[in-house]
Design a protein around this nucleic acid. Structure first.
Length: 447
RNA sequence: GUGGCUGUAGCUCAGUUGGUUAGAGCACCAGGUUGUGGUCCUGGGGGUCGCGGGUUCAAAUCCCGUCAGCCACCCCA
């Protein structure tokens, strides 16, 4: 008995027992059905990608969060023998960080895909992040993407798909915040902030609702951005938050016009779809992933610190894998985030797992007779577990209660000879002896 | 990356100003009830008190270090 080995899964990773698996499957089945109803086709890509595929797509912080796979054997020995060994010498493969970059690689690799490729993907991704509530190192993303078109109809469709998933799962109170990378860029530029500080400025801006205008100014000052510039930015932002601002920008000639027109077009296209009631223009929304170029999205829901999903348009990403540019837009739902809120709100009903019938036998009944009976009952459509041993009947019934089986089938030599079985309802305690052929009807009637 | 909290039985936790053999509930096993469970009663097994060092006559308790987990930020899905 060596007890030195930890039995916990690695940090940020989890085991899923039966109840967890059933809940996850339930959500995933809705996701899959809704995504397919929009005409998206499935894609699965490898767990491992080449680092050349992954690096440089997510920004410097993203690169830091990649799980890298160490070279093996001779290759590792050779790498270790070199001078001033770096991470890049020790590894050339890593775990998938999201589902969008693999999609971009696939689009570039299979040139005979449809010109308008609508694919969905439901797979785990890995990030070497610090775990927190609702944040894991291994988690599932549920992505829809449309490549090959700049039409804002595509943007509206991916928003519609995720919105319908959430609605069908029973959510009513979520919102899809939308903004546009060009609006953010123009916001920063018009305030006189140099482009190299754009990223910094946007991160601080995103916190406006939490820390307030003075907090933003203070943080920006710490990052070396002048007060006058911060104030200019906040003024413009305040202006953008007024009702009708989007329309005003769209009708103007200024640097905000194009982005605002696209958002207006997106909202108009989505107006009669499932996302319509949930889309909200949010000029403070700034998403981190560096590959977004146009509209950006993020789903927020009361009671959830982070987001349930996010996405946006990335018209330059696929071009990093091939000579021509292919425009694309996508949306990603975070399975664990959805589950977290559903569990907190008690949005799951009965699970329907485990056997409906536990087949108990007395010690003088041959095992083969029990298996023969179980086979008949399974053929009638029942979920049946055969109790492997034959201890005192009380033990077998106790086990049936423990696992929550609603019925026990009791097989003794008398029943065996008569072609009957004792069927005990473990909820009511009622027990009858009936022909084997009548078991299923009785179980299903009381199930 | 920043700040805070917690590490005691398989799980959730109690353990008083440091004091003698470290407890409870749940779970597990046995018996009450030998072809009838879940409820109830009785009993039982199970602990290097995260790890290492220090203070002390004496440490689960105090101090230092270390590791792990959780929460809030940050960031994200």
């Amino acid at each position: 008995m060596s007890q030195a080995i930890s039995t916990k899964p690695p940090s940020g990773m989890r085991d899923f027992l039966a109840a967890d698996v059933v809940r996850r499957r339930h959500v995933l089945s809705v996701v899959q059905r809704v995504y397919e109803s929009f005409g998206f086709v499935p894609l699965e890509t490898p767990t491992i990608e080449n680092l050349s595929t992954l690096l440089g797509k997510y920004g410097p912080e993203g690169d830091q969060l990649l799980y890298r796979i160490l070279h093996r054997r001779d290759k590792l020995q050779r790498a270790l023998g070199g001078e001033s060994v770096t991470e890049l010498d020790l590894s050339d493969e890593g775990l998938r960080y999201d589902l969008t970059v693999p999609l971009a690689r696939v689009v570039a690799n299979y040139r005979d895909l449809p010109a308008y490729y609508k694919r969905y993907a439901i797979q785990p991704v890995w990030r070497a992040d610090r775990p927190a509530k609702g944040r894991f190192r291994e988690f599932y993303q549920c992505d829809v993407d449309i490549t090959g078109t700049k039409s804002l109809v595509a943007d509206a469709e991916v928003c519609g798909a995720v919105a319908l998933v959430l609605r069908e799962l029973g959510f009513a109170d979520f919102s899809i915040h939308v903004n546009h990378r060009e609006l953010l860029r123009a916001l920063v530029a018009s305030a006189g902030i140099p482009p190299e500080q754009e990223g910094l400025a946007l991160i601080v801006l995103d916190k406006l609702d939490k820390v307030g205008p003075d907090g933003v100014k203070k943080e920006l000052a710490e990052k070396g951005i002048a007060l006058a510039e911060s104030e200019a930015m906040l003024r413009t932002l305040e202006d953008a938050r007024q009702p009708g601002a989007l329309e005003r920008f769209a009708s103007s000639d200024g640097p905000f016009a194009h982005g605002a027109r696209e958002l207006r077009e997106l909202l108009a296209a989505a107006a009669n779809g499932p996302a319509a009631a949930h889309l909200v223009f949010d000029p403070t929304l700034a998403r981190g992933l560096s590959y977004y170029t146009g509209p950006i999205f993020e789903i927020s829901c009361a009671g959830l610190a982070g987001s349930m999903g996010g996405g946006g348009r990335y018209d330059n990403l696929i071009g990093m894998f091939m000579k021509q540019q292919v425009p694309a837009v996508g949306f990603s739902l975070g399975l664990e985030r959805v589950l977290l809120v559903m569990e907190e709100r008690g949005m799951f009903g009965a699970l329907g797992i485990g056997p409906q019938v536990l087949l108990c036998r007395f010690a003088d009944v041959p095992p083969a007779a029990a298996i023969a009976l179980a086979t008949q009952l399974r053929a009638q459509g029942l979920r049946v577990e055969v109790f492997a041993d034959a201890p005192a009947l009380g033990k077998q019934l106790g086990y049936a209660s423990t696992i929550g089986a609603p019925f026990a089938a009791i097989l003794g030599t008398n029943e065996l000879a008569a072609g009957t079985v004792g069927l005990k309802n473990l909820v009511t305690g009622e027990q009858v002896t009936i022909p084997v052929g009548e078991v299923a009807a009785r179980v299903l009637a009381n199930g």
